[in-house]
């Protein structure tokens, strides 16, 4: 099934850091009648987490996301370690490109959080580029506070929502 990945395939990227069952893949791609419906999920082959060339390995073993401090977009040491491994994987698997999704917690106004999420996504993109990944394989998008992963209103959830997620897609450029 790994070979059946279509060009337009979107990948479910959910199972890494969170116990939450909600896939971190959001609206826009699937129309109301499309697979999974609004905000739904297009399912594709992830491969096995033990296969270093698989998307599952990238998402779970390396980790597809990094977290940020409140109102910050700087990458701490742990984030840099994860991103270094992401860069190595992307350099070894050039048939993939990635969309980096920046997110914010709900403690902020809508427009500011959109801009902040973009800052976070861009910080990840710049780091990956610094590690040798071609910039034309990396696109960014910010969801601001529109798509929280965890929905409680305290720091335990907020900290998981302040994230940038590297979402792989098949295809060399975006």
């Amino acid at each position: 099934m790994y070979q059946n990945l279509g060009k337009a395939l979107l990948i479910v990227a959910a199972l890494g850091l969170s116990a939450c069952a909600n896939p971190d893949r959001f609206g826009g791609a699937g129309g109301p009648g499309g697979p999974g419906g609004p905000g739904g999920v297009d399912v594709g082959g992830l491969g096995s987490p033990s296969d270093p060339r698989s998307i599952a390995y990238f998402n779970q073993t390396i980790g597809d996301r990094v977290l940020f401090a409140v109102d910050q977009s700087t990458l701490d040491a742990q984030a840099q370690q994860v991103l270094s491994q992401q860069a190595q994987w992307l350099n070894a698997n050039v048939q993939y490109s990635a969309i980096i999704e920046g997110h914010a917690d709900e403690q902020g106004t809508r427009e500011y959080n959109l801009a902040l999420g973009e800052r976070r996504a861009n910080a990840v993109r710049e780091f990956l580029i610094s590690q040798g990944v071609a910039g034309n394989r990396l696109r960014t998008v910010s969801y601001g506070k529109e798509r929280p992963l965890q929905i409680c209103s305290d720091e335990s959830c907020y900290r998981q929502n302040r994230r940038a997620v590297t979402v792989l897609s098949a295809g060399a450029g975006v």
């Binding site: 959001f26 609206g27 826009g28 699937g30 129309g31 109301p32 609004p38 809508r110 427009e111 969801y143 529109e146 798509r147």
Partner: peptide, 9 residues
């Protein structure tokens, strides 16, 4: 609009 996409403001 319909609910297919996130819409804002």
């Amino acid at each position: 609009t319909d609910a297919a996409s996130i819409v804002l403001a």
